[in-house]
Amino acid sequence: MRIESCGKTFADGTRALEPATLDIARGETLVLLGPSGCGKTTMLRIIAGLELPDAGGRVLFDGNDMTSVPIERRNVGMVFQSYALFPNMSVADNIGYGLRIRGMARQERAARVAELVALTNISGLENRRVDQLSGGQRQRVALARAVAVRPGILLLDEPLTALDAALRDRLRGELNRLLRALGITTIYVTHDQSEAMELGDRIVVMEKGAIAQIGTPREIYFMPKNRFVAEFIGAANIVEAPVENGHLVLPGGRQPIGGGASRAAAVAMIRPETIWIVAEGGAPLSGIIDSVSFIGDRQRMVVSGASDKLLTIDAPNTIKAQPGERIGLLITPEAVRLLPAEN
């Protein structure tokens, strides 16, 4: 599947999407990730055929130009954020609707519906009305309905956002296993980075209608291309300092980095869990502990004096340190990632 320079300007002049090009491999799960209003839904709707890209944009399935093919003939499965289940049909009729439209015989249809009911764990609910279901059950029905027709591509728009946190975590795992088992090409929209990390083979990070970075979860996390991606994914310390002879020159010392030309102003990212706390004097960098909050599996410390801003550190939960204490900070050169300077 390929999206070729697809932009979208709405009739009222809103530029929702800058022309973007994207390739999706067969069987891959691609996650569109970004803050609210960045154009994720718009991109998904263009792929689905619910929205036409601006002139020049093309949507290709298996090399065939589908740009002007309406959604009902694209063979896509869609799960909407609101689920959009048909209120005038039972659960089984909802799941079997696409099959009925395709003219599948009643018995064959019933068999396929039963298969999906088992797959999505909703046995016993087949004859319920949709308004008699809980949020999690609705989500499963919506998914079952979308995959029942064996779509060429599955599109999910924030399918878990409407659920409470505990259920979201459980369903996320379930969804992940289901998508792997089906081996179906999937595009998954979310603004939740942990959801994106767990589900995505690759993640497309979007910012203000443009693609900021495409990469595997690891690439996105460890090698963000810019400050926006670094801050949006996980927690990040953004440090602004000059670079001299392969060192960041900070108020608390000189931190070695993996090379890079000397310059007066650089922007670097350091993840909180890559900073190690050691005795003062044993490290190139030192600072004073501002606060310590014990989280359970780890503790979060805020250190001042080491960098131009406060540094956030995720330290093991066994370290005993008090606010006001002076400590040394050890960071491997590879953990410091230089970002392009902003203009």
Partner: peptide, 17 residues
Amino acid sequence: DVGLEEAARSLGASPWA
């Protein structure tokens, strides 16, 4: 709910359906 109509179309329903 326009979403319902879009859902039906995504499942292959013609405008009449």
